[in-house]
Simulated scan of single mutants.
Amino acid sequence: MSHSELPDRIALTCPACSPAVETAHEVLSTGGGRVTVRCTECQHVHKETPPTEDTTDLDVVISQDGESFTATVEAPADEELAVGEEFVAETDVAIVTVRITSLELDEGRTESAPASEVETVWTREVENVSVNVTKHPKGGQHDATESLTLQVPGDYEFVVGETDELGDLEFTVEGIHVRDDAAGYDFDKLDYDGDTVVAKDVNRLYVRDETSTAWSAW
């Protein structure tokens, strides 16, 4: 943790009132590798070397539209990582928001673990996502069902029962299959009017085509 990242208050021993037990101190200024602090218990002002935080470098594999690339991310060594959590990863290509899909340790994969024990963090990008869609025709003919893919922001909302329009496609959402790594949903398949899922949590979207087709007698 750099001095510029120090919080407004830190825990330190106070030479005036608490030399053995840490108390809360207000950070007044930084410089020269030291910080000037004021004890909140006795108001004594003194300079100290700020506490350092153990960190570890994580190898992160990022999946994006069927392709994968790697990045290295620094994290607190004792931070607990878990499948489903999201974080910002800075790569050589771009800064992206990703979601953890799996954690690889020496002995195999797991759902959660301290950062210091993780060999590889497997993730997928959730800032902009591809949504798989099964589209039924307006007339309901099952032999005319079509599969397609929509490119949307990860926080874009799909609502069962509502008609949406994206590009040249107009459709009504009939059901949504939720991804395994999504949290906060009661069921894997949602099909009641008003059920809402953000795009980054969608495994597959089931829709009825509402696109108007221009017709002329000439």
Rank of each mutant, 00 (worst) to 15 (best):
M1V: 12
S2W: 02
P7G: 06
R9P: 15
L12C: 13
L12V: 15
C14S: 07
P15G: 01
P15E: 08
S18L: 06
P19K: 07
P19V: 04
V21P: 13
E26M: 04
V27R: 07
L28V: 11
G32K: 06
R34T: 07
V35Q: 03
V35K: 01
T36M: 09
R38F: 03
Q43W: 07
H44W: 09
H46R: 09
K47H: 07
K47N: 13
T55D: 06
T55Y: 01
L58M: 11
D59R: 00
V61W: 07
Q64L: 14
G66V: 06
E67Q: 05
P76D: 13
A77P: 08
E79C: 00
E80N: 02
A82Q: 08
V83I: 10
V83R: 11
G84K: 11
E86Q: 15
V88E: 08
A89M: 05
I95G: 14
T97P: 02
T101P: 03
T101F: 01
E104N: 01
S112H: 12
A115K: 04
S116R: 13
S116E: 07
V121S: 02
T123S: 12
R124V: 06
R124I: 02
E127A: 02
N128S: 13
N128G: 05
V131M: 11
K135I: 14
K135F: 15
H136M: 11
Q141L: 12
D143E: 05
A144Y: 08
T145P: 07
L148C: 10
G154C: 03
D155G: 05
E157K: 14
E157F: 12
E162W: 01
L166P: 07
F171K: 06
E174T: 15
V178A: 04
V178W: 12
D180A: 03
D186F: 10
D188H: 12
K189R: 10
V197D: 02
V197S: 02
V197P: 07
V198H: 02
V198A: 06
A199V: 06
D201Q: 10
V202L: 12
V207D: 15
E210P: 01
W215E: 14
S216W: 00
A217D: 06
W218P: 08
W218A: 05
